[in-house]
């Protein structure tokens, strides 16, 4: 499992949040996806053998949101 946090452009509508979360959660290999509205961040936990963070970034961008930054953290084992 890998965690990635994307810093997005400032989110303005709560519905964008639902949109991004929905699209990410439907992606195969994504375990958890949470969009932080106020911080304008997307936190995603995913299985790197199925999907890459680059793919996730593309999904967000395809929805029309700019990704400003990325921070990846590999989890040690499961918790």
């Amino acid at each position: 499992m890998t965690n990635v946090t994307f810093l997005l452009e400032t989110l303005t509508c709560p519905s964008c949040m639902a949109k991004i979360e929905g699209a990410l959660r439907r992606t195969k290999g994504v375990e958890r996806a949470e969009v932080l509205f106020n911080a304008s961040k997307a936190k995603i936990t995913f299985e790197e053998s199925i999907v890459q963070s680059e793919d996730l970034k593309k999904i967000i961008e395809a929805l029309g949101f700019t990704v400003l930054g990325e921070k990846q953290k590999r989890q040690k084992g499961c918790f």
């Binding site: 509508c13 519905s15 639902a18 929905g22 699209a23 395809a62 929805l63």
Partner: peptide, 15 residues
């Protein structure tokens, strides 16, 4: 319109 189509591609009916 563009945003609407972007979301529809992911089967999301947004505002």
């Amino acid at each position: 319109l563009i945003n609407a189509f972007r979301s529809l591609r992911f089967k999301i009916v947004g505002i």
